[in-house]
Design a protein around this nucleic acid. Structure first.
Lengths: 376, 376
DNA sequence: TCCGATTTGTTCGTATGTATG
DNA sequence: GCATACATACGAACAAATCGG
């Protein structure tokens, strides 16, 4: 548990970092803060005292406590010519993220930058804490994979503050719509379309789609899933779209699949999966039910991760640029930093967002059933 | 008139400057100072608090307040209060490293440290460049996975320099023998022994061992391989030990295995692998040769990575602590930093190296052949 | 210029929690 | 277990500076 004066301290610091308090603005008086946080004056003074010694605030007796002008202080702190870049991802160790990080790291360290990594574990509170930390230090650029990009983001202010301090940042994999940042993403809608269209072309008409919808990747892939059905004039049973969020990813999709399999004469012949990780888990369910892939059911993954190649049934899946994307992100942020240092406006880089066109890699997890349909 | 807490402050400060209090000496307790200056405890704490933030004193709850070692602190405090730790690994994205990094990162960021990551790609030139960079900046601690620990290391000087600058560092997975650093490692010899002993206990007598010998993990595992043979009084055909280095890891072991398989009536029944990654590659070779695992040949991996569970034949393998090791590394470096700041000698931590005892996880890639031998 | 309200500065008292030896 | 020492928190009083009327 954190102490009271520390919560007060953090709350005030947050308001400064996110820009609620602007430089030289008077903050709430001690007695106001006492009421606001229901603490004694002593506690408020402790919190403020710390922030004063850290340079966030300054006080004037009889007048009030004021927000310090951080921008000037920062410039002094550029002791030494360290070049720092922060990478924020949802996860560090899982799945395709290590590859993305490596791609970025190798390129950035080539250019003499030091790379600091942060992971949010897909928790927006962690994202906020990390952004606060980044804002209170000296970074030349930030590469962000948004946390829960599917939801509205409570940390928008921090990103706007990055802009105010002219710290370039780019987003990878997804982006917050409200910000329209420079971004390096896949065309996820197209990807979802390709997954689905592939199966439909192979004669599948009864598909289930599983999509994680707390990030925009998932919602876009779902959109592609629908689009492919429409284009091929195949009706969708709404119950055949299963959405889940990060917290449910180890339970809900599997449970839902089990439910479907339990129904006799279910006509399901194909599964469209949010990603390879999920595909592997669903494969396990099918295996315990003695359902053969691709003989009985076809399955399509997404990301072309190591899982796709290492499994018993090699997965048909959508390619993800992974380390290439990391490198592209590095290059873009390097460009932005350089143009900033040359005093050019960021407008010059509006065209610099990258959208990767998805490609399908066909392996062994999908089967053409159009013939068998004809013959049967 | 000056304030009371300021007179107390000055009095203490004077005693430090004139040398009455020497570094790391305990100063009077708060209650003693209350009597001495006839002021309240609050006033004493104000004075002491200021001196702590200025770096003249440090406090230890339950123990007392101490005079800081001013000479060293000057060096550290110039930059400001960023807390930085560097992690150097051979690879970032591959295999078990992401898990190790995550374990360390989560613990360190919990404590407010910023984590910078560097990867050597197992190249000693890169290791040198990274160490140069770290030495020229302000890091509070370094976690290193040694590069090519099996070879003599040309960068020893840089590590000695870290010591000279009293920057604590620890090594994980392996260590350079010349340095005898604090380290967090596995008992790799025991691990190799367990791999081999397990197969021998199952009746296998003709084993091939594959070991990457440019790091000490490999040589130690090889040692365990030999030891298990000796203990069980089984002779080894020297040609059944295949060593390789990082550059050859995608070719040599596989080629050697193919050669062995090409020999008719080879009696090989088991493969002991440097790690799961190699085991998977060898599995692929066996698969293309239509050799069944474990029916025809048993195979043992090392590290209990995701590969062990995800493959067609679930691997019997040695457990690696992974993220737990990362956490332990983080805790150890945090301890070292704290003890350094308190002026304790590093000797207190000689016992702090950790050696994980390996455990065998038995899955489906090994088979007992002692019975079939009896019956045949 | 003075007054009074507000705001921060200094000081004391008290109580309880937690770590150390 | 106990004494010691620092950590956190609440309350109260008065001083000093500021600011608007």
């Amino acid at each position: 548990m954190t102490t009271k004066y520390n919560t007060v301290r953090q709350a005030i610091k947050s308001k400064i970092i996110e820009g609620t308090y602007t430089p030289h603005q008077k903050i709430s008086s001690e007695s106001e803060l006492m009421k606001e946080f229901s603490v004694s004056r002593h506690t408020v003074r402790l919190a403020i005292g710390d922030l004063v010694t850290e340079g966030w605030l300054y006080k004037e007796q009889g007048s009030g406590t004021f927000c310090a002008d951080r921008s000037k202080i920062n410039n002094n702190q550029v002791v030494g010519n360290q070049k720092n870049i922060a990478i924020i991802t949802t996860y560090i160790s899982d799945y395709i993220f290590p590859s993305i990080i490596r791609g970025a790291e190798s390129r950035l360290s080539e250019e003499g930058y030091q790379v600091s990594i942060f992971s949010t574990n897909n928790d927006q509170n962690n994202e906020r804490r990390i952004l606060e930390k980044i804002l209170s230090q000296k970074f030349d650029g930030v590469i962000v994979e948004p946390t829960k990009s599917g939801y509205s983001n409570p940390n928008i202010n921090y990103y706007l503050n990055l802009e105010r301090l002219s710290i370039p940042y780019i987003m990878i994999n997804a982006y917050y719509d409200e910000l329209e940042p420079i971004s390096i993403v896949m065309d996820d809608e197209k990807g979802g379309f390709l997954q689905t269209d592939h199966l439909i072309k192979l004669g599948h008409e009864n598909l289930i789609g599983f999509f994680k919808t707390d990030d925009t990747q998932g919602t876009k892939r779902m959109k592609g899933f629908l689009k492919a059905h429409r284009k091929n004039k195949i009706a969708i049973n709404p119950s055949n779209i299963i959405t889940y969020n990060t917290e449910e990813k180890n339970t809900k999709p599997m449970d839902e699949l089990k439910k479907v399999l339990a129904v006799k004469n279910n006509a399901i012949t194909g599964l469209v999966c949010y990603n390879d990780e999920l595909a592997m888990k669903l494969l396990d369910i099918l295996r315990t039910d003695n359902i053969q892939v691709p003989e009985d059911i076809s399955i399509v993954g997404y990301d072309d991760s190591f899982l796709a190649e290492v499994s018993e049934v090699k997965l048909t899946t959508i390619e993800h640029p992974k380390s290439e994307m990391g490198e592209a992100a590095a290059n873009t942020i390097l460009d932005l930093i350089q143009s900033k240092n040359n005093g050019k406006s960021e407008e010059d880089f509006n065209g610099n967002s990258t959208v990767y066109a998805p490609n399908l890699t066909i392996r062994k997890s999908t089967r053409d059933i159009s013939e068998s349909k004809v013959t049967s």
